[in-house]
């Protein structure tokens, strides 16, 4: 959390970029008598395997990672950070299951290379909570039963958040358009719409059927 306010003088990323060739060279030439620390040795191996450093800010926490360049943002979130709320349903940008916020905009995280998300603010479903307390949109999805199996739900809720971040009073048509990239095979759509309408403040208690 403090990373932004107190930038480190010595960034591992810069260091690695700057001296990687030399290190690899010395490692290869004199493996037995290397004075490189174990940590650097490990990093060197990763560089040799083609991995790249990635500085990722997810749910306001900064992560420093080494990843293969072909890794998608969705893969990093799920496999590296274990933020499994983000779901891979089609992995082709067709269903919206992997929707996350990138600097406040909804994107399909399966369609973005993780390296392209470097230094940007990523918000996943887990990031909407405050401690154990649900976000009002999440509460609306509970109250209005905007889900069945729940697998597409994180993507639906993030898509709704993206709509409401832009416009706190969207029309029904704007909500439908904004949510139309998120497939729900259980087809809980009427209740998803109701949940988003409620989150936007259009519905009051007692309309929960």
């Amino acid at each position: 959390m403090n990373d932004k306010s107190s930038p480190r003088k010595f960034s591992r990323r810069k260091f690695v970029q700057g001296v990687s060739t030399t290190i690899i060279g010395s490692y290869v030439l004199t493996p037995g008598v290397s004075k490189i620390s174990e940590k650097l040795e490990a990093e060197t191996k990763e560089i040799a395997s083609g991995k790249k450093p990635l500085n990722l800010i997810v749910n306001k926490v900064r992560y420093e990672l080494m990843i293969s360049p072909e890794t998608t943002l969705a893969e990093v979130l799920r496999n590296e950070l274990k933020l499994t709320g983000t779901k891979l349903i089609c992995n082709h940008g067709e269903c919206g299951g992997c929707t996350v916020l990138l600097n406040g905009e909804a994107i399909y995280s399966c369609q973005m290379l993780a390296l392209d998300a470097g230094e940007k603010e990523v918000t996943t479903i887990e990031g909407l909570l405050t401690g154990e307390e649900l976000h009002p949109i999440q509460k609306a999805f509970v109250e209005h039963d905007g889900l069945q199996c729940g697998y597409c739900t994180p993507g639906q809720i993030i898509a709704a958040q993206a709509i409401l971040l832009k416009n706190s009073q969207p029309s029904k048509e704007e909500i439908l358009t904004g949510m139309s990239g998120n497939l729900c095979r259980c087809a809980a759509y009427p209740n998803i719409l109701k949940s988003v309408l409620a989150a936007a403040g259009y519905l009051t208690e007692g309309t929960n059927r």
Binding site: T84, G85, T86, L128, V142, D145, G150, T153
Partner: peptide, 15 residues
């Protein structure tokens, strides 16, 4: 309301 809704909307439901 579904008793498992919290897990589903918070992303903590483990599939």
């Amino acid at each position: 309301s579904r008793i498992d809704a919290y897990e589903k909307v918070s992303g903590t439901a483990s599939y």
